[in-house]
């Protein structure tokens, strides 16, 4: 599923790396615990989280995650945006809860890791 479709489905807004709307994803994980995210060995995973600080972007970098969905109306701060831009990581801000965002994406074919 392309980022442009994810943005639409989640009533979200891409706030970083808008030029990467054609990136496509098949699997996702949802977590506020970055330690959990760092245990994933899969590549090209969508991260759905409510944790809006710079460690989210650093964790995405180390885990080769190219798109972060910030749920429950969390917004990316300037530090996050600057780092995500430098690293080419897409950020989507979304009004849905982590549960709802995950449910919508699951229903439309995005697969869980476990």
């Amino acid at each position: 599923m392309k980022i442009s479709e994810i943005e639409k489905l989640l009533e979200g807004r891409v706030v970083c790396c808008e030029h990467k709307m054609d990136l496509s994803f098949e699997i996702a994980c949802a977590s506020d615990l970055m330690s959990d995210v760092l245990t994933l060995s899969h590549d090209n995973v969508l991260l759905i989280t409510g944790l809006n600080n710079v460690s989210t972007i650093r964790t995405a970098e180390m885990s080769d995650i190219h798109c972060v969905i910030l749920a429950r109306n969390k917004t990316a701060n300037a530090e996050m945006l600057a780092l995500a831009k430098e690293l080419g990581i897409v950020i989507i801000e979304c009004p849905y809860s982590v549960f709802r965002a995950s449910g919508v994406l699951f229903q439309t074919g995005i697969k869980p890791i476990y």
């Binding site: 506020d32 615990l33 970055m34 330690s35 959990d36 995210v37 760092l38 245990t39 944790l51 600080n53 460690s55 989210t56 964790t59």
Partner: peptide, 16 residues
């Protein structure tokens, strides 16, 4: 913990 860490998973994950 606010930064998303501190769950006691770091050293085991390093070893892995």
């Amino acid at each position: 913990r606010e930064m998303g860490f501190g769950a006691g998973m770091g050293l085991p994950n390093i070893r892995k």
